[in-house]
């Protein structure tokens, strides 16, 4: 059984340039896949295409089947039904993903109300629960705050809580920790890891950072210039990269990391 099935997905701009070229991949329920690539590789666009969230001027051909629904060419009502229920997304920059003029609690209440039909005190309780689940201390205060009043890590947790609110089968995380400090990033990765494991949720984790992807995903696709150049287990890719580009990626990451081996006795 597959949860997500991309076959021959091709994304083009209106002037005919190809951004993603004939991409095929599948994802089983509960599976955790990394999409690795540098800027311009088409990895983020691929993630957006899964939810039918492509920016204007980019058209998709091929097939994206998410939990039995064909996304390519689907009408907006169909997409709305799929989003949240079958798949939800967390973006890189939580400050732009959240409405700056709405308190965090109200933003989070919206999907909870839609999905579970909660109202009044029950809804309020659910909001606080959801905030607690993403390990936010002081959920009361966070719920009452506007996005700019809380830190980047807290905002990203709120965004994650919103994505999880509808209990999707698939979580799409598009560079969710790139804008965060290292220690906050480590906590956030831990949190995502725990939450999706508990829920048996499938993950598509998009990142340029191999080490970060390795924290979450078991399998990964390396993308370059819109094409998948290599696919395999994360361990396999890191230990014995086959494609030249993957080798360059792993080599660069290793070189930077090796600088940290300062005769550390630990």
């Amino acid at each position: 059984m597959t949860l997500l099935d991309l076959s021959g997905l091709t994304l083009r701009t209106t002037d005919g340039t190809t951004l993603v070229d004939d991409l095929s991949l599948t994802l089983a329920p509960g599976e955790r896949l990394g999409l690795i690539g540098e800027s311009g590789s088409g990895k983020s666009l691929t993630a957006l295409a899964v939810l039918g969230l492509l920016p204007e001027g980019i058209t998709a051909t091929g097939s994206v089947e998410l939990a039995g629904t064909q996304i390519v060419g689907a009408r907006e009502e169909q997409l709305t039904r799929v989003r949240g229920r079958d798949a939800a997304v967390v973006f890189q920059e939580p400050l732009t993903a959240l409405d700056p003029l709405m308190r965090a609690g109200r933003q989070l209440a919206e999907p909870l109300r839609r999905r579970h039909g909660l109202r009044g005190p029950a809804l309020k309780r659910a909001v606080l629960d959801a905030l607690e689940r993403v390990r936010l201390a002081e959920p009361d205060r966070i719920a009452r705050s506007f996005p700019h009043e809380i830190s980047g890590g807290q905002r990203q947790r709120v965004a994650l809580a919103m994505a999880l609110a509808c209990e999707p089968k698939l979580l799409i995380a598009d560079e969710p920790t790139t804008a965060l400090d290292v220690s906050v990033q480590a906590e956030m990765l831990d949190l995502i890891d725990t939450l999706v494991r508990e829920r048996d949720m499938a993950v598509v984790f998009v990142s340029h950072d191999l080490a970060v992807v390795a924290r979450i995903a078991d399998r990964a696709v390396v993308m370059r210039q819109g094409r998948a150049v290599e696919e395999g287990t994360v361990l396999g890719l890191v230990r014995s990269p086959a494609h030249a580009y993957t080798r360059a990626l792993v080599g660069s990451a290793r070189r930077l990391e090796s600088a940290l081996n300062l005769g550390d006795p630990r």
């Binding site: 290292v182 220690s183 990033q185 890191v238 940290l260």
Partner: peptide, 25 residues
């Protein structure tokens, strides 16, 4: 010295920063 500070950190905050660096498997 960097080798000392990052190689054998004395302060817990430095150690926390170091531990948080994601590493390749």
């Amino acid at each position: 010295d960097t080798a000392r500070v990052l190689g054998a950190p004395a302060h817990p905050y430095t150690r926390r920063l170091l531990d948080a660096v994601p590493r390749l498997p």
